[in-house]
Amino acid sequence: MFEISASRKVLIQPFRDFRIASDRWNKANDKLMLYFDRHCLENFPKIEGITQDMIDSWCIQRKTEKSISCYCRTYIIAKLVEFLNQRKICSLVVPELIKAECHRTYIPHAFTDEELSSFFAECDNEVSKAPNQLTAARRLTVSVFFRLIFSTGMRTVEARLLATENMDLVNGVIDIKESKGVDQHYVALHESMLEILKSYNSVIEKIFPSRTYFFAYTATVPFYQEWSPLVFRRIWDKVNRDHANPYDLRHNYAIRNINSWTHEGFGFSDKFLYLSKSMGHMQLESTKYYYSLIPALADTIASHSQQGFDDIIPEVTEYEES
């Protein structure tokens, strides 16, 4: 385990083991626990264990810190306190998490069918012009990677770090564990996307047998973080003029789904919940952000039943996790 003070390690270790057993732990949490321990050592050098003052001082929003950053930094500590309290190991007040306010300036690109067709056609064109097998595999990865995001609304980081063992190509289900959020979630694949992934897998397996990552740079290494935006812009700029980035494909997935429900009245509620869960949103408010991008949707739903409308679609104040 990471190097932290012994008096806090005995409290954190059971919590860490519990979260790992339920697939709700990642390397970022290890770092946060280490930083929390350093905070305690610096500010409470003579006090062992975990006290309320330690928790409260850690959870104060810093002057240079955005609300979303504060939320991400303090979330796992709040869960630690809940864990300790439930097992009567400690009796601490669970910190109230700061909700990130939505101050968006970037408007996601609204793709046209023509733009998407030209983009994916160029992706495929690059595969056909590859000079060797490895280059062809890398270019095929680009084509399938962006189709997966377009088809499922997955985050780019989720697709990039998708482990081969978490891709169920028999039942068409993706088990997402590496994400910006803290909660594991599942994505069901459309039959057409499943067939593409099966074909891709058969090709890549010949180059990287038993690879760790589904989209593999090498047998054990994923593509680097900057890879997807760089390759997206390179191909996109060849065939389109307007600005767009790969994350806009995720927004497109949400918006097109919501647009398809405009004539269903309040029958959209179950679909909306499924959309929120499949996109990995921890709170419904995150999914409600898309209402601000589809003003006509609010008018359509209101026309079905004005009563209670404001309770169902309130003012959007929550953030959408990147």
Rank of each mutant, 00 (worst) to 15 (best):
G308R: 07
S276F: 03
S276Y: 04
F268N: 00
I294L: 12
R250V: 00
H251L: 11
S292Y: 07
K277Y: 06
S292W: 04
Y290R: 05
S286T: 13
E315D: 11
D310S: 14
G267K: 15
L273N: 07
K277Q: 15
Y290P: 10
L297H: 15
Q283A: 11
A296C: 03
D242E: 12
I312E: 09
D242N: 05
D310W: 09
N252Q: 10
H304C: 06
T262E: 15
G280C: 04
A244S: 15
D242I: 03
H281A: 02
N259A: 04
A298H: 05
Y274N: 09
L249I: 08
A244R: 04
D299C: 02
T300E: 14
H251N: 12
I312H: 08
K277I: 13
H243D: 15
A298L: 13
D270K: 08
F309Y: 15
P246K: 00
L275G: 09
W261R: 13
M279W: 09
D270M: 04
M279Q: 11
S269N: 01
T287G: 10
I258R: 13
A244C: 13
M282W: 02
D248C: 10
S260D: 03
N257K: 07
Q306T: 06
H251R: 05
D299M: 07
F272G: 03
